[in-house]
Amino acid sequence: MDNSAMDIDVLRIVCSVVLVAAFVFANATVMGYLERKLAGRFQRRLGPMEVGWHGILQMPVDGIKLLAKRMVVPQQAEGLVFRLAPVISLSPVLLPLIAIPFSPALQVVDMPAGLIFVLAIEAFGTIGVFLAGWSANNKYAMIGAMRSVAQNIAYEIPILLVALAVALKAGSFSLAEIVLSQAALWFVALQPFGFLIYLVAGLSECNRAPFDLPEAESELTAGYLTEYSGIGFSLFMIAEYTHMFTICCLATVLFLGGWHGPALPWPAYSSAIWFFMKAYGLMFVMVWVRWTFPRVRYDQLMKFAWKYLIPFALVNLLITALVVCI
C-alpha cells in the first residue's frame, strides 16, 4: 500500500468518526426539539417557545445546563460503574451507524455481515442500562434494570427473526446489498408482517413508550435513571435518541428500500435525502405512539413478545424461506 492510499484511509476514518459523533449529538438535539414540539402539537399546546425563534435554541440551552450541572453520585452507589454506565450505553447505539448505508456513497464501511454486526452491537445497549440500574443501589433503579434486561432479551429475538427473513430475501447480510436488492420493490410490500413486528419490537428495544417499562416514571419514579443527573442523564438521553435513530435506519434499510426513491432536483443528494426522510418519518411514528398510548404492564409485555411476536416472526421466516427455495 503506498503512502497516499494510506493517507486517504486515515483521513476517511478520522472524518467518519468526527461526522458520526457530530451527527449523534445533532440528532439528539434535533429529535429532542422535534419531540417536544410534536408532543406540544399532540397535546394542544405550543411546546418550547421562549428560547430563540419558536424555542429553537431550547435544546442547546438545556444541553449546556445539563453539562454545567454536577453529576451527583450517591454515596451507596458503585461509583466507577455508575459513571461508566452512560458511556457503555451510548457506544453500542453509536457504533452501528458506521455500517448503515445512508446513500451509495455515504457509508463508512460496507461489511459483508453488516446486519449481524448492527444487531449484535445493539444488543449490548442493555448492559449499559443494567449497569446503571444496578450500580445506583436504588431499589427503583434495580427494578428498572431487571425489567430492561428481560424486555431486551425478549424483543431481540423477533427483531433477529424478521431481519433474517429479509436477509434471506436479499440473499446477503451486507446492508448495502440489501438496499440494492430493493431497487424494484421495497421489502415492506413482501414482508408487511415482518415490518410491523420489527416496528413494535424496535419500539420496545429502545425503551420507548408504550414499552418504557425500565423508566416507567409513574411506577418507578424514573427506573434506571432515578439517580442520574447532569452529564450522565444527558448521555442516556442522547443514547435513547441515537438508539431510536439506529432502529429507524435499520428499518429503512431492511423494509423501506433504503436510499431508493424518485429522483429529486438535486441528484447528488437525492438518495441521502430519501433515506433521512424515511428514517425521520419512522421516528415521527415513534413519537406519535409515545404520546398516545398508556404504558403496558410488565407481564403483558413479556406475553406479547413470547406468545405473539416470536411465533409470528418464526412463521414469517419459515414462509420466506419456502418462497425463496421455490
Binding site: 408532543a39 408504550p210 409513574s218
Partner: peptide, 16 residues
Amino acid sequence: FLLDLGAFTPILYCFD
C-alpha cells in the same frame, strides 16, 4: 389516572 397508567397526553386535554 391516565398519567399513572403512563399516558401523558390525556391530562393536558383534561386540564384544558
